[in-house]
Amino acid sequence: MHPRADHHPPAIHTRRAATRLLALLGVAGFVGTARAAAPGWPEEAFKQTSEADAIKALYGKSAATSDKITLEVPEIAENGAVVPVSVSSSLADVTAISILVPGNPLTLAASYTLPAGTLPSIGCRLKMAKTSNVIALVEAGGKLYSTSKEVKVTLGGCGG
């Protein structure tokens, strides 16, 4: 992890590993508030099984592709159970960052709400059962933006 203690930590909503997601590692060692204690927990959004439904449930609007989002993922996962994902953005006035994995049984993997003044940069690790796109959603200035990359999950072996 890369400590960024000079910035406010974002509040973190996350489901538990039981929903095929590995527990999120919060930025700067600030572990997210527990579900029960988190007002505004997006219950419906975390239940969705498609990209469109998850985005609709979370934000109620559609996302435009942006090149001002940096999504860092491995090309091939070294271990599908712990795939490192980080998202940062140069967009102004970022208020939320979410990560979707359409290939997982439940699409929404993580959603971060960022108080004003927070550096828009998050990192976590996700469990991925199979090769899938990973989509980063960034809400900035009241609008929604996205970028995506594919992460390959392979059986491994037989390299030359």
Partner: peptide, 17 residues
């Protein structure tokens, strides 16, 4: 792709790409 093409146990502390 060292730990993918070969057993991870040889270099468990390292990540590549």
């Amino acid at each position: 792709y060292q730990p993918i093409a070969h057993p991870r146990r040889f270099v468990p502390d390292w990540t590549f790409g």
